[in-house]
């Protein structure tokens, strides 16, 4: 464990908590893409199956349980409890165009052709594009609440911090996973235009307006 990975995991946890609090306190999931949240739940489910038979550390196990519980909790809030506030008209990104290529790629490019490793690789590929429905929705609605942009900033920062963690581990000549690194770079690049808008607008108190 190093400071970059710890900050990355905490940033990820912060993003999930910001989202849960936003939905719970405002009793609304307006502006939030349920499809992205659905993809995140798939990512965690496919990646954390080793929860039951590989013990890395207490931290690792606890965080996996927290991420699984909060992602399904978010789905519950969005699709059941506050279903009436879910903006399905703007949440229309075709997620099958993300899931199917991720499955195909995981079958073609992986470290080990076993079920658990293929699922892990699938979750890595899917996570790198899972935010697209949310970014698409923000561009379609043309704007996002500031709380949603804080959520996106924390979520985008998590994988950016993981890149620093991989650089740090590279200097320590630790074993790295090229698949996770390439996917992590792609994932972070997808946030770049949002990061620019967030740093130049939201932090100056303006609303986040994405060019439609």
């Amino acid at each position: 464990m190093n400071i970059f990975r710890l900050l990355g995991d905490l940033s990820h946890l912060l993003a999930i908590i910001i989202l849960l609090l936003k939905i719970w306190n405002s009793r609304s999931c307006a502006g939030i893409s349920g499809r992205s949240q659905f993809l995140f739940a798939i990512v965690f489910t496919a990646r954390y199956l080793d929860l039951f038979f590989t013990f890395i550390s207490l931290y690792n196990t606890v965080m996996k349980i927290v991420f699984l519980a909060t992602s399904y909790g978010t789905l519950y809030l969005m699709y059941i409890k506050f279903k009436a506030t879910y903006d399905s008209n703007h949440d229309t990104f075709r997620i099958e165009f993300l899931i199917l290529p991720a499955i195909a790629l995981a079958l073609l490019i992986n470290e080990e052709f076993t079920v658990i490793e293929i699922l892990w690789t699938f979750s890595i590929y899917l996570e790198s594009v899972a935010i697209l429905p949310q970014l698409f929705m923000v561009s379609k609605t043309g704007e996002a609440e500031s709380i949603t942009s804080h959520y996106l900033f924390a979520l985008g920062s998590y994988r950016a911090l993981y890149i620093l963690n991989w650089i740090y581990r590279w200097f320590l000549t630790e074993k790295l996973n090229a698949i996770a690194i390439v996917a992590g770079i792609v994932q972070t690049i997808l946030y770049c235009d949002f990061f620019y808008l967030y740093l130049t607008k939201v932090l100056k108190g303006k609303k986040l307006q994405l060019p439609a």
Partner: peptide, 10 residues
């Protein structure tokens, strides 16, 4: 023995 790939990151 094929060394099992272990992913220690979240």
């Amino acid at each position: 023995q094929s060394f099992k790939v272990v992913h220690d990151e979240l």
